[in-house]
Design a binder for these strands. Structure first.
Lengths: 192, 192, 192, 192
DNA sequence: TATGAATGAGACTTCATTCAT
DNA sequence: GATGAATGAAGTCTCATTCAT
């Protein structure tokens, strides 16, 4: 847990970023079977450079996911103080789905967050926990404000979030159908 | 003479079944990257036997999917005459999700059914179309009976079905959480 | 059971013939990599039927070759009494080349006949010997009639025959180019 | 192993050479059905190394052929200015046959050179064209010097060259029989 | 530190051969 | 006898990972 990283040289850090974002792009384009070579080429670095920063293919992809999840968790911070607690929850939910739609394979990790975390990467499980916490906080607040049905709890919400993410990334959902599906689901979330 | 003959044909057909159900099990356990060897071992047959019945890895997996989808489409036949049109729709929806929970990768095909069918296997596309039609029929009937919100149309329903299947399959959803998630979603389906 | 070959039932013998000629056709069409299944299909019999008559793939193809070579050796019988000994030799030589042009892989065996027989099938080596003898007889007679250079002996003649056969089968030589090449070679055969 | 040579960027090129010459040797020993693994073992490299340098089995074998053919075409350059145009032609012809005798399968390509080039590898077709041109040049020159019969043209010469190569390669012709056969053929080439 | 050549396990697929029906 | 389903060794090729430069 206490993975203390020492400051990388600036060019090394820049390479790490390039690899990460190349990996994300390649994952989005080619799915989870994307090869390390494809990532290296997209990043414009050698294969060895990837392995300098990420010990293994799985570690690289886990890093992609946790990075993305952390970004989402950060978004929740802002929303947790929004005036309309219900809107904040729905906005966050939508943002996560939207995000998943842009990146194949991140949804897999989101799905994992719902149950047990299978990956042994503490980074991913940490980010997943952060995301879960973020959703939980917004959920609780919205419910207390009477904007969500009282019997809606975090596990179901996470499961449904994961479901929508998986579908969004697999369908390459366009905004319109996505919004229609979410509108229906959100009606199920509301108190009667 | 009167003894039941055991022609090779029978044995061959049984082997085909064994391969199909082994493939389904392996797909469920190992995901879509499952190897042909794993299927062969699970089926207790040689590798060549698989290839006798299915010319290609893709063909085998397509057969698994279309078989499963056809079974579901058949179920819809019975339900389409049930007394309670709303219950029939929800039961079918639940059955499909339940089914997907048992088989990774079938959900992929279900997802495909929602949009365009990408696989060129006419078997799969046919089965997918059958499933789409089945859901459409039940949906229409339930809506006309006033059990579904008037603005719920097939595309959204399919998208949400696919989403739930994907999640069920990935989470290995147990009945309890699955039912809770579906209950919420179904509330979203109902007229207010 | 006695190992002595006994007359085959007429249908069995007919099957043997069908397999042989199907094998020749398939060999001609697909080259020496032709599969047993292709032969079975061309012959309209099951795979097992081939193996009833020929213990291995190699045995089948050897039988094809020896059959063909025997036919050629028989042709030499007629020619060995022709009035023009020189023409008889050239005609035989041409006939063999022509034949090879029609059947891929038989040329391989002809080539083998020129040196040592590698196949352990006594059938093939016997047929090759018959062919060698046939050519030798015609050669000797033509030379004694003064139609061939005195220093042309069987080994060279066989080597050149094999060469032309190989080329003929590989090029799918049409008659015209084949005749031009043979005319030149035959000029080399003649006394100055 | 005494000293292990240390891979260099240069070493990659050397590995390429090792693979090429191993492939030539294996092709000569085992014929055109030689396996990639056999080549890898003969070269003392891993299978993957072959595929790094040659994308495909066919590409490797094509490279072997075109390399060899190019070497022969180069030889013709020197001979094209020899004092004795007839001897130059015969020497070249002999050299090509001699060469083919050392490598099975190269003869196949030579045969292809005689007609149309079937391989889509531009390397091979280019080398084959170079070889054809080389023979044509020497042939023309020798004929103009009155050392070849006037009606000997390139197509026949190529066909006969291919024939002799095929036979040489298949027989593992020793020099003596080869020379005897060539002497006879060359007499056919000369003006009467 | 970055590079990319090398490695080899493992994937898919074919096919000669055997054997139950 | 005939059939063709089953088998599994072997072949080609891919790709995560290591390591010398």
């Amino acid at each position: 847990m206490s993975e203390k990283t020492r400051p990388l040289r600036t060019d090394a850090r820049r390479n790490r970023e390039r690899v990460l974002s190349a990996a994300e792009a390649v994952l989005a384009r080619e799915g989870s079977a994307a090869s390390m070579r494809a990532v290296a080429e997209a990043a414009g670095v050698g294969l060895g450079t990837i392995y300098r920063h990420f010990p293994t293919r799985e570690a690289l992809f886990a890093a992609v996911m946790s990075t993305r999840m952390l970004q989402l968790a950060e978004l929740s911070g802002e929303l947790s103080e929004a005036a309309d607690a219900g809107a904040a929850f729905f906005e966050f939910f939508t943002a996560v789905v939207d995000n998943a739609g842009r990146m194949r394979a991140v949804a897999d990790a989101l799905a994992d967050a719902g149950v047990d975390v299978k990956t042994d990467s503490s980074d991913v499980s940490g980010a997943a926990a952060a995301l879960r916490t973020a959703l939980g906080t917004l959920l609780e607040r919205a419910r207390q404000h009477g904007r969500l049905r009282p019997d809606l709890h975090l596990p179901e919400a996470l499961a449904l979030l994961a479901a929508m993410c998986l579908a969004a990334e697999r369908h390459q959902w366009d905004p319109a159908p996505r919004d229609r599906a979410l509108a229906i689901l959100f009606d199920g979330f509301r108190p009667r």
